[in-house]
């Protein structure tokens, strides 16, 4: 919301100044007259008005599309961008011949691009909108392969009895590992380390828990 005050010899005069200054039509403004309301022929006194303008924010989807297509254009990569909006999230699907490059090793490039996109498109917004980037269904595939991986490691832990420490993962990836194994009565999982990249430890549940 933008609130400004303008003065003019008449109310119409002041309003014209407001229109020119804000670059909008007076129909978009809510107007309140502050002084000089009912004084006819009051020479020399100015009419002061206060105007309220509801600023329409550009939709996030448009911002994201503009940012990403402009970015890839600089290095000559063709992309098509599709968006799907929810209340507090915006899902963005990138279609490109260079999907592998954009995803990067274990999704690192895609994660970085997502972080930067979130910061940039939310910079001047009042309400933070989480942007989730995906490319060629990478996230679904990654989720499936992480689930398979978790089950495989859990099997190994059961056979050998030795705990396994996985490579560092981001919170979303760790969540998938924990969720996949949470209903296994023989297996326990725990995140270890500091920062956003932690390692998940997969180990046997201690037997005494069953004896209780």
């Amino acid at each position: 919301m933008v609130i400004r005050e303008y003065e003019g010899r008449t109310q119409r005069d002041a309003l014209k100044k407001a229109e020119a200054d804000l670059g909008v039509d007076s129909e978009q403004l809510k107007i309140e007259v502050i002084t000089g309301k009912s004084k006819f022929f009051s020479f020399g006194t100015l009419v002061k008005i206060r105007v309220y303008l509801e600023v329409m924010e550009e939709p996030v989807s448009k911002n994201v599309e503009n940012f990403l297509s402009g970015l890839f254009k600089t290095i000559g990569i063709n992309v098509t961008i599709e968006t799907y909006e929810e209340v507090d999230k915006l899902y963005v699907e990138i279609l490109s011949d260079s999907a592998g490059l954009i995803i990067g090793k274990r999704g690192k490039t895609l994660e970085s691009l997502q972080l930067l996109t979130n910061i940039i498109v939310n910079k001047d917004r009042e309400n933070w909108k989480k942007v989730v980037l995906d490319i060629e269904n990478y996230r679904d595939k990654r989720e499936t392969s992480l689930k398979e991986f978790a089950l495989k490691v859990a099997d190994k832990v059961k056979k050998t009895g030795k705990a396994q420490l996985l490579e560092p993962m981001n919170p979303f990836e760790r969540r998938i590992i924990h969720m996949t194994l949470q209903n296994d009565p023989q297996i326990n999982t725990k995140s270890e380390g500091a920062g956003s990249l932690k390692k998940v430890k997969i180990f046997l549940r201690r037997r005494k828990k069953y004896n209780k």
């Binding site: 490059l101 954009i102 970085s112 691009l113 972080l115 930067l116 910061i119």
Partner: peptide, 20 residues
């Protein structure tokens, strides 16, 4: 730069991809 260099790290990662 960002908190703990988070943004700088992300920029380096995608710049590396762009120059790969």
């Amino acid at each position: 730069i960002g908190k703990n260099g988070r943004i700088a790290k992300a920029i380096r990662t995608i710049l590396n991809a762009a120059i790969a």
